[in-house]
Design a binder for these strands. Structure first.
Length: 484
RNA sequence: CGGGGAGUGGCUCAGCCUGGUAGAGCACCUGGUUCGGGACCAGGGGGUCGGAGGUUCAAAUCCUCUCUCCCCGACCA
């Protein structure tokens, strides 16, 4: 398979990113066809690992996987006013089917609140039926004006959780609990530090009371919304008439939540850790943790030196759970590059010299440091090394987040920090400023193409202050940044 | 939709200005020598240049129309 060069330029991030993802291949992970992404082998393997991590946690918190229809009667979308307003512009609609014009068109789901609301109404009658905790792994379509590899494709894979509760308190607890799950997976599994917060009313999910989110910072300082968890209140309950009888025998509308994370996470992963030499995968998400590259040396081949090296390499590989790259006709150098650019955490060199000395040379992907070690110690040291790398990658990303987070006390200051920031040039910051959750503030910030990313749940700064736009008192600083 | 750019073997691209009927590198196939950071030699297969029309003795190259993709903006996970 072809190995195109990575024409990475660390400052030209968009181009770099495009190159890594399009051509830089973790076995050529993806390409875009008409705004939709084709995810190839290794890219999908990373997604599968992420899925497993998320799904395990959903199940551990009592959720069940279900599957709902792809096509939703258009009228369903219209039942919740804000929802239809928010999603109408990006709907793909099926008007013709079976060779006939449909009486009522179907929309291809952009998200499933409506059709799930429809079923919740059928399934929920009593307080004994609650809570209902559902998750769906699915594809959805949002016809955005512009696509971006991994971050915004027309069709994407995601997971959407939908729950119904008998009271608001419990629903909010669920919203927060799932937000924590996302944050945990981002930080512990993806090694991507995130800020948990709430969206402004302007930025919230269409139809929600409140949207919670985790925001990550990419290497160019851009923000990436990596997961959301919505408190839907009774909006959808009322729209779809999801009522239950409480213990007192009275009818009440359910309180709902929804939460989702998508293949965008893979983009976030790449843009958080990868470097000019290709992908860097955190060990927990690396489909292949370690590869042994055998080197046969001058005496190789004929006199059996090659066989001895290979035999020993396979023995070691079996002990430590590594893979041997025994492909013919490729030099060791080519193999090193091959695995390096695919983000394999540990590449092991093993040749005649190691065979003689009982050692093996180990190179870690995150730091690029190469060191010899006794073969006998490898099996024991590898797991510890992988977890050290996992931590190291998180720490590095956390450090970057800290370094690029700044305080500002006037709108002019925020503007001067962010106005010239672009995805290509980099230099993005998370600007912490007191700003009110008021559409006027969102609009003011949009003047220089930034957004209020979130109001953090935990205030790590100086508490209350005056809004830099309206002058009104607010209780903590919010994150303002340019975002993908 | 507005502004840029690009469509030429599998991939990346040169050739176009100054028309003469297609090239390079990588990849692929065969044989051999290699093997501690993208090996080398020799031989070989594969494209009619996004599509349509026009000008011309002759079009990848000039003209007209059209399609597609990429980047920037508006919309957004």
């Amino acid at each position: 398979m072809a190995e195109s060069p990575i024409t990475a330029r660390s400052q030209d991030f968009a181009t770099w990113y495009q190159d890594v993802v399009l051509q830089g291949d973790m076995a050529e992970p993806a390409e875009i066809v008409k705004g939709c992404m084709v995810i190839k082998a290794n890219g999908y393997a990373v997604w599968e690992l992420l899925q497993r991590e998320l799904d395990g946690r959903f199940k551990a918190t009592g959720h069940q996987n279900m599957y709902f229809p792809l096509l939703i009667p258009q009228s369903f979308l219209h039942k919740e006013a804000e929802h239809v307003e928010g999603f109408s512009p990006e709907l793909a609609v099926v008007t013709l089917a079976g060779g006939k014009q449909l009486d009522e068109p179907y929309v291809i789901r952009p998200t499933s609140e409506t059709i799930i609301g429809h079923f919740f109404a059928k399934w929920i009658k009593s307080w004994r039926d609650l809570p209902v905790l559902v998750n769906q792994w699915a594809n959805i379509i949002r016809w955005e004006l512009r696509t971006r590899m991994f971050l915004r494709t027309t069709e994407f894979l995601w997971q959407e959780g939908h729950t119904a509760h008998s009271n608001h308190d419990e629903a909010v607890k669920e919203v927060r609990r799932m937000l924590d799950v996302y944050a945990e997976v981002a930080e512990d599994v993806m090694a991507v530090p995130v800020i948990k917060g709430v969206k402004t009313q302007s930025e919230k999910f269409a139809g929600a009371l409140q949207s919670y989110c985790i925001e990550a910072m990419m290497q160019n300082g851009f923000a990436l919304q990596a997961g959301t968890s919505h408190d839907l209140g009774q909006n959808f309950g009322k729209a779809f008439d999801v009522q239950f009888q409480n213990k007192e025998g009275q009818l009440e509308y359910v309180w709902q939540t929804s939460w989702g994370a998508s293949t965008r996470l893979i983009g976030g992963l790449i843009m958080s850790h990868s470097d000019d030499r290709g992908l860097v995968l955190p060990p927990k998400l690396a489909p292949t943790k370690a590869v042994i590259v055998p080197i046969y040396g001058k005496e190789g081949g004929k006199d059996g030196g090659k066989d001895r090296v290979l035999e020993a390499a396979h023995r070691i590989a079996k002990e430590v759970g590594a893979k041997v790259d025994d492909r013919e006709g490729q030099t060791p150098g080519a193999k090193f590059f091959h695995w390096e650019r695919r983000g394999v955490p540990v590449v092991l060199e093993f040749g005649p010299r190691d065979l003689a000395s009982g050692s093996i040379v180990l190179k870690r992907r995150d730091t690029g440091v190469k060191q010899p070690m006794p073969q006998a110690e490898l099996a024991e040291k590898l797991p510890a090394l992988l977890s050290e790398m996992q931590k190291n990658m998180f720490d590095a990303a956390k450090q970057r987040l800290r370094t690029n987070t700044v305080l500002a006390n006037s709108i002019g200051e925020v503007e001067s920090i962010l106005k010239d920031v672009t995805a290509e040039k980099g230099g993005g910051k998370f600007v912490m400023a007191h700003v009110k959750d008021d559409p006027r503030c969102d609009l003011r910030v949009k003047e220089f193409k930034a957004t209020i990313r979130c109001i953090p749940l935990v205030d790590e700064y100086d508490g209350p202050g005056k809004c830099i736009v309206t002058g009104e008192q607010v209780d903590r600083r919010a994150v303002i940044a340019k975002a993908y």
